[in-house]
């Protein structure tokens, strides 16, 4: 499962939006990666996500493998949109 998003928060993917995403995906069983500029990090790692320094307007891909991957991607999508972090593209 894979979906791409355009980051729309004015400050980019900083601590607060990152924290929202990491918190949401942590309970899931499957592994999840966030890919940005050819670099992939574990979306369950706030350090990993923040270290990418993702700027507003960036395109990121979220990919998940495993039993609950569909549900995870749906959750990420919901949070991106309802919290104004990003939009699907």
């Amino acid at each position: 499962m894979k979906k791409t998003f355009k980051i729309t928060t004015p400050e980019g993917l900083h601590a607060r939006p990152s924290a929202l995403l990491v918190t949401a995906v942590t309970p899931f069983e499957c592994d999840v990666l966030l890919t940005y500029n050819d670099k992939s990090v574990n979306l369950k790692s706030i350090m990993g996500v923040m270290a990418l320094g993702i700027l507003p307007g960036s395109i990121v891909a979220i990919s998940a493998e495993g039993a609950d991957a569909d549900k995870l991607i749906q959750t990420v999508s919901d949070i991106m949109i309802t919290k104004g972090i990003g939009e699907e593209c």
Binding site: A19, N42, I46, G48
Partner: peptide, 16 residues
């Protein structure tokens, strides 16, 4: 308060 939630996440960080 959000900063302290972020601090908690750092302690759950799998990489760290």
């Amino acid at each position: 308060a959000a900063i302290f939630a972020a601090h908690q996440l750092l302690l759950e960080d799998p990489e760290m």
